[in-house]
């Protein structure tokens, strides 16, 4: 079996140290008993306790979770439809504009997306707050969903879909019986991507929010501007923990599904 060469081992170690050390330090110092960020004052969980007695932080966290759940769910449906259109509908009228609108938000600076959505909401006179943040988040996360699902759609064998259509399935049934089960891992992971992108967003939320809707990143941002606080370290560590656990569980789940699918496919081939 092939081993790591020295050069590769060094570049991997250095690269991953750069990626992980700052986050590990952040987590470590959230357990620091002292107020300082550089002097270790012994282990303590008091900052975690103070997070749970901070009503403002808890409210912000609850709003953020609701926004993320709603927007990720709608974005997954819309993004999957967009992916189907791009991967299966051939050259329909206005395809160039459509694919442009799907790919542009992936790289569009957030300040521009945020400002343009705000000006839309102002000019049609809607009250800004929870729902405008949800609309904004659906809009930018559905593009990420579309790209992830599309790459799964182009990679699988279309003849299965065609067979189902030939055997009298309606396109609607074909999608739910054949296509959806096959792209399900991609759909689930794109929901999670949309969910974490929404959890994470500061800039677009700041533009599109109104009175009464402060998300957790907005709260963290305004606190950080006043200086580093151990309490914020604790909040951040908890967010990192939640995301890490979800991602690892999801990747194990999709991996198992893939293994099972491959086995089923192999079985089908040997029988035929």
């Amino acid at each position: 079996m092939k081993r790591f060469s020295t050069f590769n081992a060094v570049s991997l170690t250095a690269g991953f140290a750069f990626l992980y050390l700052p986050i590990l330090l952040l987590i470590l110092y959230s357990f620091n008993a002292g107020r300082s960020v550089a002097v270790w004052g012994g282990w303590s969980t008091k900052w975690y306790a103070s997070v749970f007695s901070n009503q403002q932080l808890l409210d912000a966290a609850w709003i953020t979770l609701k926004v993320a759940f709603l927007s990720a769910s709608v974005a997954t449906i819309l993004g999957t439809m967009a992916a189907l259109a791009l991967a299966r509908h051939g050259r329909f009228a206005g395809r160039t504009l459509f694919s442009g609108m799907v790919y542009a938000p992936l790289v569009m600076p957030e300040v521009i997306t945020g400002l343009s959505l705000l000006l839309l909401f102002v000019s049609i006179n809607v009250d800004r707050g929870f729902w405008t943040i949800v609309l904004a988040h659906i809009t930018f996360t559905m593009c990420f969903v579309a790209v992830v699902v599309q790459s799964r759609l182009v990679s699988f064998d279309r003849s299965i879909e065609e067979a189902a259509l030939d055997l009298g399935c309606t396109p609607f049934m074909t999608f739910f019986r054949i296509t959806l089960p096959l792209i399900l891992p991609a759909v689930i992971s794109s929901w999670m991507l949309a969910f974490t992108l929404s959890l994470d967003d500061l800039v677009i939320s700041s533009f599109t929010t109104g009175p009464g809707a402060t998300t957790l990143p907005m709260k963290i941002y305004s606190d950080v501007r006043l200086g580093v606080k151990p309490e914020i370290n604790a909040v951040c560590s908890m967010m990192v923990a939640v995301v890490t656990v979800t991602v690892i569980i999801a990747s194990i789940m999709t991996k198992r599904q893939e293994v099972e699918r491959e086995r089923a496919e192999r079985l089908a081939q040997t029988k035929s």
């Binding site: 990626l19 992980y20 700052p22 986050i23 330090l25 952040l26 110092y29 300082s36 960020v37 550089a38 991507l193 974490t196 959890l199 994470d200 500061l202 990143p217 963290i220 941002y221 950080v224 580093v228 914020i232 370290n233 951040c236 967010m239 990192v240 995301v243 890490t244 991602v247």
Partner: peptide
Amino acid sequence: VILPFWTSFLIRVYAWISILSEEGL
């Protein structure tokens, strides 16, 4: 490589404040 990308952008930037500040790590 992907895992840090899933954790908040704001948190990753914030982590550097306590590393780089004058009395930082």
